[in-house]
Simulated assay, not measured.
Amino acid sequence: MPIRNAVMHFIDKKPDGSPAVLHKAQATLAPSEATDNLLFDLNDAYNAKQGKAWGFFHDESGAYPFSGWLRSFVDGKTDFVEFTRESVEHLTKLMEESNLTTGGHVLFAHYQQGMTDYLAIALLQHSDSVSVSAELEVKPSRHLDLSQLNLAARINLSEWRNNPVSKQYVSFIKGKGGRKISDYFRDFIGCQEGVDGPGETRTLLKAFSDYVEREDLPEDLAREKTHTLVEYTAAQTKLGEPVALKELSELLDEERPQNFAEFVQGADYGLSSEIPADKRTINQFRRFTGRAEGLSISFEAHLLGNKIEFDQDAGTLMIKGVPTQLVDQIKRSVKD
């Protein structure tokens, strides 16, 4: 993960309502193992966050100037330090206007992962602790606390440059404190939501369930493919990468690598070739399947306790919201 540029500014804003004081860096951070480790840990913390959104920039304007400053840097008209200084001044202004958050260290990191360029921006908080010196003395210390990462965004610069119609090259943390807490940071980036991550993930899982049903797979093979799906999507979310439909299809069926992708495209689920998978939705997905004496039952785990109730003592399942097609078949059978 080569770091091309990294800058750390500091916004000193206390919760007592006093004006924020901005301390701007004069130069990029010197290359070091500590900087590499910080970016590595930041990416891990960011990828693990649930409740992220994906989107794209608003048109550049006075209200949303960030994309213009970024474009100037990407085009080589502005250096990285100047780009971040303009940006952090704007962030400080929005922070003052919102009066909903304290300050912190603002990290801008331009780095490469594989063949892709990224820009990560994060407002980092610190925690007080103690350390032991070489002389065995206990001393107070402060460290950046990534467990408090609530305001951060990541921009896929390669996607932004090369795919102007994309609506998912920016991702950002929505935040736990409600929309107002994160709205000013989203407005600072100047982006709007373009892809419903949880909704896209649910559609992908629905397509997979339909695919398994159409293929009429044996129970053990259906379970194996479900495991492959969950493992792959979990790995992609851990890396902060989208689920590639083509790659998933190849993993699901090595003999017919395009079978699942062609099924999805042919059935017109409306999924794009890359899907920003939602970790929470994936974690809820697992299929229960069973066959015995002409009876075949298969359902997703998240339906248990909702549409499907299990009586352990009686060994029975109660199904609510039976599919209309099945109901019609049963009614016709009873009439006959």
Score class of each variant (00 low, 15 high):
residue 115 M to H: 04
residue 34 A to K: 15
residue 51 G to K: 04
residue 89 E to P: 02
residue 76 G to A: 11
residue 57 F to R: 03
residue 60 E to Q: 12
residue 111 Y to P: 01
residue 35 T to D: 13
residue 39 L to E: 12
residue 25 A to T: 13
residue 62 G to A: 11
residue 35 T to G: 11
residue 41 D to A: 14
residue 59 D to V: 15
residue 96 E to W: 02
residue 122 A to G: 09
residue 51 G to E: 10
residue 24 K to S: 13
residue 62 G to N: 09
residue 98 S to M: 08
residue 55 G to N: 06
residue 23 H to D: 14
residue 92 T to H: 05
residue 75 D to H: 01
residue 74 V to C: 06
residue 82 E to M: 03
residue 107 L to Q: 05
residue 38 L to K: 03
residue 113 Q to A: 08
residue 45 A to H: 02
residue 37 N to E: 15
residue 99 N to F: 04
residue 56 F to N: 10
residue 62 G to K: 05
residue 84 T to F: 00
residue 42 L to E: 09
residue 67 S to L: 10
residue 39 L to W: 03
residue 81 V to C: 00
residue 80 F to T: 09
residue 107 L to R: 02
residue 41 D to G: 08
residue 63 A to Y: 09
residue 115 M to A: 13
residue 92 T to N: 11
residue 86 E to W: 07
residue 59 D to F: 14
residue 24 K to E: 14
residue 118 Y to V: 14
residue 48 A to V: 09
residue 54 W to T: 14
residue 67 S to E: 10
residue 18 S to Y: 04
residue 122 A to E: 03
residue 56 F to P: 04
residue 82 E to T: 06
residue 39 L to N: 12
residue 66 F to H: 01
residue 57 F to M: 10
residue 44 D to V: 06
residue 55 G to C: 05
residue 42 L to D: 11
residue 29 L to S: 11
residue 92 T to M: 08
residue 92 T to C: 11
residue 99 N to H: 04
residue 25 A to P: 04
residue 117 D to N: 08
residue 75 D to L: 01
residue 122 A to P: 06
residue 43 N to H: 06
residue 28 T to M: 00
residue 74 V to H: 01
residue 89 E to N: 12
residue 70 L to E: 03
residue 79 D to T: 08
residue 67 S to Q: 09
residue 103 G to C: 05
residue 26 Q to H: 12
residue 122 A to I: 01
residue 88 V to T: 09
residue 116 T to V: 08
residue 21 V to M: 06
residue 118 Y to Q: 08
residue 91 L to C: 05
residue 74 V to G: 06
residue 52 K to E: 10
residue 44 D to H: 13
residue 84 T to H: 01
residue 101 T to N: 12
residue 40 F to L: 12
residue 112 Q to P: 01
residue 99 N to R: 07
residue 27 A to E: 15
residue 107 L to A: 08
residue 58 H to S: 12
residue 44 D to E: 15
residue 30 A to F: 13
residue 54 W to K: 07
residue 77 K to Y: 02
residue 48 A to F: 03
residue 57 F to C: 11
residue 59 D to T: 15
residue 82 E to A: 06
residue 45 A to W: 00
residue 25 A to C: 07
residue 62 G to T: 15
residue 35 T to P: 05
residue 34 A to R: 14
